[in-house]
Design a protein around this nucleic acid. Sequence first.
DNA 1: GCCAACGTTGGC
DNA 2: GCCAACGTTGGC
Length: 153
Amino acid sequence: MKYWLMKSEPSCYGIDDLKRDRVGVWDDVRNYQARNFMRDMKKGDRVLFYHSSTDVIGIVGIGEISKEAYPDPTQFDKTSYKYDAKSTEVNPRWSSINLRFMTKFKAPVTLQELKLDPFFEGMLVIKRGMRLSVQPVHEKHFKKILELSTAES
DNA sequence: GCCAACGTTGGC
DNA sequence: GCCAACGTTGGC
């Protein structure tokens, strides 16, 4: 099983939206590196759900990959601002995955906490200028974040 | 709202 | 294939 981190702006789609929907469609990634990671995802992989561009920045819950990469429907939709004229049905450029809600933390494990704890050194999300919205996470970091989240209230 | 750090685009 | 210009991300 692999572990990932996925960023989302809560004003756009946050953990509460995922909780309500139970399964969320990740369908607007237009970055090749992020796409490639999404294509590596396997059913059952765990995902740290991260809130960006908000007052409390950090990891707010856990999800699970419930459907592996498939062509992102928005790339063929001419009415979508995510429409990509260069993408074809035969050779789609962009991929989607489905994410199933698992847990919402009582309190976020904040970016600030991660930066202060030497244990998380090397974790991609705390690297300055790391804008990648989908990234792999080490198992030890994932597990530690789970511990931290239950330690909080 | 600022701006640094990237990624992408397109002229050459 | 280089690289300047431009657009976007995302923390602060």
